[in-house]
Design a protein around this nucleic acid. Structure first.
Length: 284
DNA sequence: TGATATGTTATCTT
DNA sequence: CAAGATAACATATC
């Protein structure tokens, strides 16, 4: 599912291909996905694309498009869309197939030089038009960017000291640390050799330092491989190609397989209804 | 077939 | 009241 590295990969792609272009039309096929009046953004130019946690932020001349892909949102860009209304994609897109628009296509942006499709199987994701003022307020509430100056071991120390919730649950708390979901939380804890069930306030300062490094290491690795695209995941890059971080999973979805460090079998448990993976020997 | 998976938020429980 | 736990959302897959 799209977490920080996946959303950042999409951001970079859109930044390279869409900046400077004008939105010529917007087609809404599923009203609940799109909040605001689509006519309002027609004629506006795309100025820049940024990311906060798992949010994508497309700055237009006047307004801002605030986007969350949630579990299964996809953004697929087809440059130089053919004259026909249907485009046969050169590769299979998860849950959408090879023809766009697909059953899961809920919003279509017609842009200079192509079409941008918003697909979403589960329909939990959303796109919202925001005015500058509303964006400024929302943006100021989003904190804890892992690649920001703010994100230090001391910052984590302060957060962890306040709760005895399991450390894995705290890592995925978007209000405290932005952009980490199930994949990277599991893998970061393995990097730090910390058991996901440990109460957050029980971590030593040495463990917090290791976890800080582990978070940055797995996110950087995720970015390097353009995110993770497993069989049951919807994530793909906007050109339709999969990421390859799934070949570098430390523990995520590796239950029953050998730990990469000690060869013990990776264990799977459930926490907060979510699959949790760890090496019982390495992670104390 | 009914359980499972999944991020976030609303709502329930302790 | 607050912290923590769970339900709800949608739907393909097994």
């Amino acid at each position: 599912m799209p977490e920080l590295p996946e959303v950042e990969t999409i951001r970079q792609y859109l930044g390279r291909h869409l900046v400077g272009k004008t939105i010529k039309n917007v087609e809404i096929r599923k009203a609940k996905i799109f909040q605001g009046n689509p006519k309002q953004i027609i004629g506006q130019k795309i100025k820049r694309v940024e990311r906060r946690g798992k949010h994508l932020i497309i700055h237009l001349n006047k307004d801002i498009l605030f986007i969350h892909l949630k579990l299964t949102g996809q953004l697929v860009f087809v440059p130089t869309f053919p004259p026909s209304n249907v485009y046969t994609f050169p590769r299979h897109i998860p849950f959408a197939g090879t023809e766009l628009p697909a059953k899961t296509t809920h919003v279509i942006f017609e842009i200079d030089g192509g079409k941008l499709f918003y697909n979403d199987l589960r329909q939990f994701g959303w796109i919202k038009i925001m005015k500058n003022e509303e964006f400024r307020i929302k943006n100021s509430e989003l904190r804890g960017e892992p690649f920001s100056k703010e994100f230090t071991p001391e910052y984590l120390q302060k957060i962890f000291a306040k709760t005895k919730k399991p450390i894995k649950i705290v890592l995925m708390d978007q209000e405290k640390i932005a952009g980490i979901g199930n994949i990277y939380a599991n893998d970061a804890l393995f990097e730090a050799r910390v058991n996901p069930l440990r109460p957050a306030n029980s971590l030593t300062s040495e463990e917090i330092k290791k976890l800080h490094r582990g978070i940055l290491r797995v996110l950087t690795d995720g970015l390097k491989h353009h995110g993770s695209s497993t069989a049951d995941e919807a994530y793909i890059q906007p050109d339709g190609s999969p990421g390859s971080y799934q070949y570098h999973f430390r523990v995520y979805q590796r239950d029953g397989e050998k730990c990469r460090v000690c060869e013990e079998k990776i264990k799977r448990i459930k926490m907060g209804g979510r699959g949790t993976f760890f090496c019982p020997k390495c992670q104390k």
